[in-house]
Amino acid sequence: MDLVLDVLSWALILNGAVFAIIGGIGMLRLPDMFARMHGAGIIDTMGMISIFLGLALQAGFTMVTVKLVMIVLMVLYTGPTATHALARAALHAGVLPLLSERRAAPDTTDTDATDTREDA
């Protein structure tokens, strides 16, 4: 049983590490700030959750696991708020997302498919 738990937790930690690296590659490869947010999202969700879940399996039913779950929940609650604030600040400063297509919003008329301005 211990062996099964060990293997499972190592698999989770490895999975989290791999996804974190993929997210890092995404942050380097993706073309603009709004796309890079998705790469950062991978690190914040799958990378973090998976590694912490693996650590929790190693710790078993102890205070350590409670604290790990607390950290995961805190990052999950605060992460989207920070990302949303950042996206709003970028839009407010005039950084527009690089789009391949802008679908018409129901209440706006300024649809421009070639809008690729990137500097602030």
Partner: peptide, 25 residues
């Protein structure tokens, strides 16, 4: 842009949290 930098630093912070936890183990 400055927002790329903020995004990167935010991710860096999350990774620091993970690193501190892993280092504790």
């Amino acid at each position: 842009t400055v927002f790329d930098r903020i995004l990167a630093v935010n991710s860096f912070g999350t990774l620091t949290v993970v690193l501190i936890a892993v280092y504790g183990f």
